[in-house]
């Protein structure tokens, strides 16, 4: 194994560490939302600093790798992809932090009917599983899994599009619970963004492994 291989492997390990932390952050807000667990929400908000710390370290390691090893070809694409995935994971962490803050500001457990009609829990399950699967794609350099993310992101987009009407209907029938309805709408927006980050990460993985640029590509091009 070359020196560069060792450094790249360490970078990969660090990124996977950050990835698992972000997955855990998102899952904790999921649990905190269902159980209205403010302690857990507080833990997520406190852990945001750790996510930021990971981001800075990985940024710095990428910078050193560029400066000291002048990576080319697959090594260059790997380092560029890590840099961008890192940024997308940090933003996903921000989403979890934001959701945690909504829960901390809540006055009581979320109405189960509201959670059901908005499909926010389904959205959570999907976003969380996308984040886990895209990690698997990265770990095993599997572009087939990475490509599967694009379709799944559309599920989140559709729930997000429907949410305005659903929440408006809910507010009409539950005028005393407007605040919670608006919180859930904001959570849906954030989960939709998590889906976008997963999609961006999938594009970076395909770029790294296949040298194909799928940013702004059509659905057909992405499927190829």
């Amino acid at each position: 194994m070359t020196h560069l291989d060792k450094e790249s492997l360490q970078l990969k390990t660090d990124l996977i560490g950050m990835w698992n932390l972000v997955i855990s952050q998102l899952n904790k807000t999921h649990e905190a939302l269902i159980n209205f667990d403010k302690d857990l929400a507080h833990e997520v908000v406190a852990n945001e600093k750790r996510v930021n710390g990971h981001e800075l370290k990985i940024d710095n390691d990428c910078e050193n790798l560029f400066a000291l090893f002048n990576p080319v070809a697959i090594d260059l694409r790997f380092t560029l992809a890590v840099l961008k995935i890192n940024s997308n994971l940090e933003r996903t962490g921000d989403m979890a932090d934001g959701i945690g803050r909504f829960i901390l500001n809540g006055n009581g457990p979320f109405d189960e009917e509201l959670l059901k009609v908005t499909q926010v829990i389904h959205m959570y399950d999907e976003a969380s599983s996308m984040l886990v699967d895209i990690l698997m794609a990265f770990e095993h350099e599997n572009t087939k899994i990475a490509r599967s993310i694009f379709k799944r992101d559309e599920i989140l987009n559709q729930i997000n599009i429907n949410s305005i009407q659903v929440v408006a209907d809910y507010i009409r029938t539950h005028p005393d619970n407007i605040e919670q309805a608006l919180f859930v709408l904001s959570i849906i927006r954030k989960l939709e963004r998590v889906g976008d980050h997963c999609k961006n990460i999938a594009e970076e993985i395909i770029f790294y492994i296949e040298a194909k640029v799928l940013k702004h590509a059509s659905k057909k091009q992405k499927a190829e």
Partner: peptide, 11 residues
Amino acid sequence: IFTNPKDKKTQ
């Protein structure tokens, strides 16, 4: 060649 070489030997 330096971003996406086609041949494994080149890479």
